[in-house]
Design a protein around this nucleic acid. Structure first.
Lengths: 189, 189
DNA sequence: TCATTAAACTAACAATTGTTAGTTTGGTAT
DNA sequence: ATACCAAACTAACAATTGTTAGTTTAATGA
């Protein structure tokens, strides 16, 4: 647990605001007011608004990349790899709900880091799809459209940031299990 | 097929731009440039930027409300009602992909119409949940968490706007069927 | 006690924002 | 030809934007 710097506090507060209205609609004065200081004072700690966005998004994107790396290189079955992906999303989202909102909704406002972000995202999706396709080959997964399966799972997982805050009672493990159940085994009785 | 007015063209073009960068990041000058005219000229046709957003979002929200009304009042089984919901989302999204992006991402920038929008959305979700709960009572749907089921389905359906444009070859019926299959019957072989 | 330093402040800037007012253009119907 | 009208234009506005420069404050350690 490294201690939080003032810069970290700014980034955390910014993520809260960005979640509510999006990056573009939040002004540096909004952020300063939320911090209880004046806008100019923010610049003692950060270099630009853009740097805040980068600080929110890139670290999360890299956490997903690292998590996926571990899953890809594991010995698990394809179905179990998918369950680990569900856990990965639940855990990252539970630890940074507000940041996930920016990652989902404001990535296109990245400037210098946009290409890097897109590279990470494309690789992530390619790995995700490869797991599903291997599962089909091994007859673990139905031979329907693998892209539809990935799209469906990923849509749900990417929306977790909207839902986790409303269900604080539910712990991360229970949620991951319920989700895996629904996503993998369906809902019909 | 009523003919498109100039105002309709502005709204359509705005929806394209809003999809890419969000409502707040698109300026009236951006919109005017995309239309091949000057910003001030837009005001011969619309009263405000806000009116454009309302023009995009509210009509779609009402289409969902009307569609849900028909499903709720039908005689179908719960599972079949869910399939009709999938069709509803696929059809509306296929007909207005760009508008769906605004509905999903920019609804919080509605001003006068915000309360009305939220009312429609809350009612829609309540109806959706009621269908699932009835399905559980009738043993059509697994007795797992109905909210997790709704969240999972709705997340996928709300993300369709991101995915449909990439899959122009797939027709709406095929997509709806594939999605229903995955969402309802799961993916394991 | 004094120097240092993190972190706040005031004041201002150039650019961009949504919008208004008044004017010009070019085609259509009388 | 003339009147009309939708739809464009130029010019400007007041407010807000991200950001910079230089200054003050208050706590810490020597």
């Amino acid at each position: 647990m490294k201690q939080k710097t003032r810069k970290d506090e700014i980034i955390t507060t910014a993520a809260e605001l960005f979640k509510e209205k999006g990056y573009s609609a939040v002004t540096m004065r909004d952020l300063a007011t939320a911090m209880g200081i004046k806008a100019a004072s923010l610049y003692n700690h950060i270099n630009s608004k853009q740097e805040i966005l980068k600080g929110i998004i890139i670290s999360i994107a890299e956490a997903f990349t690292n998590g996926m790396e571990g899953i890809i290189n594991s010995e698990a079955t394809s179905i179990n790899k998918l369950k680990h992906i569900v856990e990965l999303h639940v855990n990252i989202t539970a630890n940074n709900t507000n940041g996930m909102a920016s990652l989902n909704n404001d990535w296109m406002h990245l400037e210098d880091q946009l290409d890097y972000y897109l590279k990470l995202r494309n690789e992530y999706e390619a790995n995700f799809l490869a797991i599903i396709e291997q599962g089909v080959l091994d007859s673990e997964i139905k031979n329907s459209n693998p892209e539809v399966i990935m799209f469906s799972m990923l849509s749900t997982l990417r929306s977790l940031y909207l839902w986790i805050p409303k269900k604080e009672d539910l712990n991360a493990n229970d949620l991951a299990n319920s989700l895996s159940e629904v996503l993998i085994y369906g809902i019909n009785d």
